[in-house]
Write a protein that binds this DNA or RNA. Structure first.
Lengths: 217, 217, 217, 217
DNA sequence: GATGAATGAGCCTTCATTCAT
DNA sequence: CATGAATGAAGGCTCATTCAT
């Protein structure tokens, strides 16, 4: 799941542990994930990467540019992951299950990417979000979901609803949960988080499919 | 000195807006909302508040403490708002509708509180989240939702599902949407956001209630 | 000659030794004179001024701006000096003598201003030179010289020559000497510089007046 | 390897222009002329020379040494130029005219050497000035001037004046003008500089010869 | 010779915080 | 309460110089 995927160019991915650029990007992911862009310290990134601070500027010119390059690099990697993981054929339940798996993998732990995404969501007008949206658009996940639902509607086993609302609801139930879980877990006093997440997949699919199912009147 | 008031901007506070403390808190909400804790500048807060920088330290001792006080002040206010807005009786649809209204109101615009909440969610172990969770727990929203669903299950018109999963799904469809909307709006190419949000309320209630409804076998 | 002339505004002159701005400007004059803009170190200026480095930025915003302010301050002071020293009536010899005295005073020693002026002359397109030229234009020295020569020509005791060339020649013989003297003193093996400079005044006036004098043919 | 050559730019050197050393020296002249020793950047010199930064250190060991070597190289060239251009026989007017031509050629444009010389003059105690003075001493210009004047005095058509003062005055009127011209041109509002410089030669010779001429009493 | 990468010291600037008044 | 000035500790970035190849 976290193997080396070394692109030829300057988009070195998370775990190209050999090249200096790769080590810096990796350290940057850590640092930016933990402290955010403003809170990150170039000194710490240098130390984490085992390189001299000047090397960061040699390769990336500025802290902000390093941030951008890191995000670009990461999302290039993510796109590949999603592409590989996503089942695009099978029953509706199977496809949904596969989509859920992808997001669960991405957000389950306190990954740097989760933190970075959240902080970027706090700047809705920032350029980074556009970039992220672009990558996700190309990853076709939403298109898969849309055509899946459209097919169900066409074949008559799903109700005719606003498809975009349905897609948003599905994504929100998955990604949205992982985002707000630090609060909801506390409010709902969920102690065994692992178990809850395991059960969540079933619960989401059940609610979604039931909510969408056509009724015989 | 502790009344719920409206600051001149879009920031709602629990402190007298004319007092120095109030003006500082108001400016801090702006600044922290825009830049986050690490990115905020005490100088700017001073300028925004029309006061001297030293006054901030006179009243709040440190930047971090100002941040905490600001959040405390804000959530005290929020709690009141939710308490007043939340219908606790009526049909299930009416209660859910009222809950949705509250969250929509809170997150609709790019409010400072949305940004602050998101950045705090990026630090899942931070103390602030505990505080927020505490406030929300006391606001009884989740309890209302839980008992609403339990009642439905008891009376037989809702299926017997994991109630906490249901509550999480409902919250995620609402709050979660507002959080990830900067991305989903782009990916799904939603141009008329106002309209989409208006329709969303119906869509969420429809999906949720249908997904929960008991079936005749 | 070096007294405190404290303008009311932000143009503090060289020796306003009390105010922080004055102390910084004074230290800056030293430092920039010795090392030039690029070679100057803000740390050293801070140390010399007895203040914290941050205070320099508090008062002057940037090293470059401090440089500009220092020059502005200094030339404002110089203008006053020239204005006071310059005799505007008397025989031609008296006026010229007074002009020479002013420049001798300014450039005799290794003053910071001499160094700064020279380094600016190395950037002929820089803004600073324009500023300096402006100040000197307002100081009326050149106008005095021109009208002095014009009068001599009108009255018939000076030859009719290009007045601007004459003014330039006079200035070059004075200022120009002080500028190139580190070289000429060596090449011409002038050991007793003090004596040479004392004699120079006579020599310059003699050459200039003789060179300009009308001849009976 | 040590021929006098013309670099591609406006920089004259004594080193083979195609060799790496030559290209570096040429680039250094450019860079030091524009920014001075402290402001010069080794990176830029490398880029301008089309070579790697490490090559500069391979050939010149340090930035400061490169500076010295560049100056040495340049003045070796200058000496040759002066030697070739300088007429050492003819009437006094012819010789002076030839000297003026040499200096005009050297300082007319914004040559790097003009800037470098000016900045060095700002450090009157620096070693570089000694070096320059040495080269000029060897170039015999001042000796030519001295003997020219001495001859005039001996033969009776020049007044008996301090010869060194006369030489200094002559040099100052020429070199000194080119140095202070960025200021005087502005103060005297000289718009057609080309024309002024052409006329200057006559004016200087006229003033100088007239000023020195013996008078019949 | 030639190069890209690496380094350590230092530089300009900023910032949270405090002090004197 | 309120302010302008002051401070020390970084923080981002640069630069002369060196190393491995």
């Amino acid at each position: 799941m976290n193997e080396v995927i070394n692109s030829n160019n300057n988009t070195l991915l998370t775990t190209d542990k050999d090249s200096s650029k790769g080590r810096i990007i990796s350290a940057a992911l850590d640092e930016f994930g933990q402290y955010g862009l403003a809170g990150a310290r170039v000194d710490r990134i240098a130390k984490k990467s085992g390189l001299n601070k000047a090397m960061i500027y040699y390769h990336f010119h500025s802290k902000e540019n390093l941030y951008r390059e890191m995000i670009k690099s990461f999302f290039t990697y993510i796109t590949g992951e999603i592409g590989q993981s996503l089942k695009t054929s099978g029953t509706a339940a199977e496809v949904l299950s596969s989509v859920i798996d992808v997001y669960t993998q991405l957000f389950l732990k306190d990954t740097p990417i989760r933190s970075i995404l959240l902080r970027e969501l706090a700047n809705p007008k920032g350029e980074i979000l556009k970039q992220i949206a672009g990558v996700l658009t190309e990853s076709k996940v939403s298109i898969e979901l849309r055509s899946l639902i459209e097919e169900g509607v066409d074949k008559g086993y799903l109700r005719s609803v606003d498809i975009r609302q349905a897609v948003v609801s599905f994504l929100a139930m998955n990604i949205g949960y992982f985002i707000i879980s630090p609060i909801t877990d506390r409010v709902l006093q969920i102690e065994d988080r692992e178990k809850f997440i395991k059960e969540r997949k079933e619960a989401v699919m059940d609610l979604f499919l039931n909510g969408m199912k056509a009724r015989e009147k």
